[in-house]
Design a protein around this nucleic acid. Sequence first.
DNA 1: ATCTCTGGTGATCGCTCGATAAACTGAACC
DNA 2: GGTTCAGTTTATCGAGCGATCACCAGAGAT
Lengths: 228, 228
Amino acid sequence: MNRKMPIKRTRSKQRRLSADDRRSEFVTKATELFAEEGFGGGTRALARRLGVTQPLLYRYFPSKDDLIKEVYRKVYLEPLEIGWEKLLSDRSRPLRMRLQEFYEVYTGAIFNRRWLRIYLYSGLKGLDINRWYVGMVKDKILTRILRECRHDAGLATQTRPSAAELELAWVFHGGIFYYGVRKYIYDAPVLEDKAQMISDALDIFLAGFVRMGESATDRRAASIKVVG
Amino acid sequence: MNRKMPIKRTRSKQRRLSADDRRSEFVTKATELFAEEGFGGGTRALARRLGVTQPLLYRYFPSKDDLIKEVYRKVYLEPLEIGWEKLLSDRSRPLRMRLQEFYEVYTGAIFNRRWLRIYLYSGLKGLDINRWYVGMVKDKILTRILRECRHDAGLATQTRPSAAELELAWVFHGGIFYYGVRKYIYDAPVLEDKAQMISDALDIFLAGFVRMGESATDRRAASIKVVG
DNA sequence: ATCTCTGGTGATCGCTCGATAAACTGAACC
DNA sequence: GGTTCAGTTTATCGAGCGATCACCAGAGAT
């Protein structure tokens, strides 16, 4: 509204932000840009989104790579600070309910175009941070889920999960994850009720988990027959 | 062996291929290059891999984009010509065995670094061909699996699968798919016995499918309670 | 009113990119 | 043996990239 205050210079849009504000604005807009274009997105395109010139970036970041690292930090670490791991271990609540709520919160945090695309782009780059994230999912989420499942089934919880158990959890987790990929990366039609998708996936996972201890040997023999 | 035939010119490595050979060599090496570097991989790097100069590419392809399209064709269409869809519908064999074999053959075709990376890169570009592929998986694989499951359970096979059924199949399929992503994109450790992974995933999917028709309403009510 | 400090700009460098045009070369044909 | 023609190279263009430097301008302190 009060646009003509300074009268001269139409181009002075809103320049002169504080250093901290400008810096975080760079990171925010860079996240958006890199999510769409990949990390090949240009620094000039980024500057255009901020309404500033390209060299200004180098007042705040020594190189484009440092900016990218900052984007990683913001994308990966920030959503993790909600502490949703604790949701899994609260044994005062039924396991089924804990798992349902955990996955609703977890997917609520990462199921969006920005996060998923940055995640996949960084995965394709083969960066350490991506391997770190996968390891964290395994240690903080999947093994915890398996431990709670064992506890719930009255089994020993000290022993580390077997490779087959872990794989089962991965397939379950990956199936849910792929829902987000289909929706936000492929723009493919999905079942709109995300909570129901999680609920159905949980049903078959939990049913499969209890059956695993029972008849694992039978089924393994059967599958070997198929392979040969 | 007979390398020194022309005697002069050490640098004449193997030039002068037939047009068809050179063209397909471009496509093959381009697939490798783009799988690693993404479609931003340079035409000069590609030419270097062939031991030729960069402008030669433009004798065979009007533009880099046309080369990329050719790569798509080769990557997506070629593996589909094995006709693994028929494996699913052969009712002379037990359903469980059909599914096991299908997924072993299917994953045998797409679980490799080259295919998966090209697939993800093209998915991130949001290309039509990727949407087409997802639609094909849905129509040719998942609905077929669901139809066979219904038949096997003695249910009606004419009606199209419900959205919840389809989602269940997607989560199952995606869970298996994500095994490949973890192994070949993230280079993460996975259960080495792929056949067992498929077998376990099938167990819980099949168990879940039969339970779905029975007590769907109960579970849905339970999950709603969690959400609210 | 002037000085100073700092956020921001203009111009430009060196490099790589996709693409084009012209020149070269070697095998096949007469 | 010379002609022809298709496969290949050399040279180069214009655009965009990340990055650097000298300079500008405006708010706050004096």
